[in-house]
Computed example of a mutant assay.
Amino acid sequence: MRRCRVHILRAGACSHPEVMTRRDGSLKPVVFPALAALILHPEEGAILFDTGYDPAFFAATRTWPEVLYRWATPVDLPFGQAVVDQLPRFGVKPEDVTTVVVSHFHGDHVAGLHRFPNARVFCARAGLERVRQGGRFGRVRQGILAGLVPKHVDTRAAFFEDRPQVALGPDLSPFETGADLLGDGSLLAVHLPGHCPGHWGLVVREADDRTRFLIADAAWSSGQVRDDMPPPRLTTALLGDTGPYRSTLNALHRLWTRNPELVLTPSHCGEVQTDTPRGDG
């Protein structure tokens, strides 16, 4: 497996009551960062896992019913915190990004996708199909802002479902197989069902030999994984499918219990150490 350098970037944040993300939570609003990963591959160059928030999110939520998304989860994006604005600190220009891996098509994960028009897009066919189904209100209710998905994304898309499946090995049990995105074992996409159609995570072996599992929204926090504490049924039924979500969370809990050295990285966890400067908000 090829080793990569991984930088976790905070690209804005939203807030909503904790109880919406874990059923034993409080009604007090909690800040949830929107995390993306810059993956520096020794041969492929700069790769992104998701894009977090971007000013395009605010443009996409000006109209009805899309504005409901912004009202339900108020967003804060300090100046300079969009992923595209952070890349120069790592010696990366937007045009250097060769690939964007999309965990799923919720607005807080793809708002910056339009910034990388030449990048190949790895995603789930099931997720992209969902973007084009139903009416605007139904899509917004499930966290999808179709206007954030580039119109001609199909010409650049490569689907997880079509990539070669490889064994993950005992260190990642009970997860058994992953899609080998680049053919060298460096990026292994893993199906994490339940949160929404076409929801996948990504396993990366880092330069220091740690294994990082980017689990997207399979949990909103590391604490949820440790405690095996799912959101209330209201949340999981609204966005996806409660049964598969709870099964995925339980599998992650068992994985963490067996292999606590594994770096599990939820996309909205405040515990995750980021490479975004403190001065950026």
Rank of each mutant, 00 (worst) to 15 (best):
208 D>G: 01
109 H>F: 14
153 V>T: 13
102 V>R: 12
199 H>G: 07
231 P>V: 11
276 T>Y: 02
141 R>N: 09
107 G>F: 12
135 G>T: 00
275 D>W: 09
110 V>H: 01
165 Q>V: 06
265 T>W: 02
41 H>G: 07
149 V>P: 02
281 G>D: 05
173 S>C: 09
64 W>S: 02
143 G>C: 13
185 G>F: 04
112 G>H: 08
112 G>Y: 02
276 T>N: 05
268 H>S: 06
165 Q>H: 05
31 V>C: 08
35 L>A: 09
7 H>C: 09
248 T>Q: 06
106 H>W: 13
39 I>Q: 07
80 G>P: 10
138 G>N: 03
56 A>F: 13
215 I>K: 07
146 A>E: 15
207 A>C: 04
189 A>P: 02
140 V>W: 10
79 F>L: 10
50 D>I: 05
91 G>L: 00
28 K>A: 14
191 H>W: 08
122 F>K: 00
258 R>I: 05
142 Q>E: 14
105 F>G: 13
144 I>T: 15
56 A>H: 14
168 L>N: 05
31 V>M: 10
154 D>T: 08
14 C>F: 15
77 L>G: 04
175 F>I: 06
111 A>S: 04
261 E>D: 07
1 M>L: 09
89 R>M: 11
30 V>G: 00
100 V>I: 07
279 G>I: 08
178 G>L: 01
251 A>Q: 10
56 A>S: 15
191 H>M: 03
29 P>M: 06
213 F>K: 09
281 G>T: 07
33 P>T: 14
56 A>D: 14
192 L>P: 03
79 F>P: 06
50 D>Y: 07
180 D>I: 03
206 E>N: 12
152 H>S: 12
179 A>P: 08
38 L>D: 09
82 A>H: 08
157 A>C: 14
79 F>M: 03
273 Q>H: 10
135 G>N: 02
279 G>F: 04
171 D>V: 10
44 E>R: 14
165 Q>G: 09
43 E>K: 08
23 R>G: 04
133 Q>M: 08
175 F>W: 05
140 V>Y: 02
77 L>R: 08
163 R>E: 08
45 G>Y: 10
146 A>K: 15
177 T>R: 15
78 P>C: 00
157 A>Q: 07
194 G>W: 01
6 V>S: 02
64 W>G: 00
136 R>T: 10
146 A>T: 15
124 A>F: 00
183 G>M: 01
226 R>F: 10
41 H>D: 15
199 H>Y: 03
100 V>N: 02
23 R>L: 13
131 V>T: 15
242 T>E: 15
